[in-house]
């Protein structure tokens, strides 16, 4: 879990950067629906920036399967392990 927390912290930082108007919590359960600015365009940028900052790469099917930030964090942790 602490692994997940470290990755989530990094992701949260990027999310605050991209969605500068969002002031709610960033948790494993956060989804695009929670953030007003999170549209399809910014979603792609978010993915690109997470890939760059975390040094991971998501496959086409992986990206489709993410239901919330938790899925994304777990997929990243798996790659980094």
């Amino acid at each position: 879990m602490s692994d997940y927390q470290a990755i989530l912290d990094q992701v949260a930082e990027i999310i605050r950067d991209i969605f500068d108007e969002y002031e709610g919590p960033v948790t494993m359960e956060t989804t695009a629906n929670d953030v007003a600015q999170w549209d399809s365009l910014s979603h792609v940028r978010l993915m690109v920036m997470i890939e760059m900052e975390l040094g991971v790469h998501f496959s086409t099917s992986e990206m489709q399967s993410f239901k919330n930030l938790g899925d994304l964090v777990r997929a990243s942790a798996k790659q980094k392990a």
Partner: peptide, 9 residues
């Protein structure tokens, strides 16, 4: 290629 298909870039 991923974004080419996923985001049409």
């Amino acid at each position: 290629p991923v974004r080419y298909h996923a985001a049409k870039t």
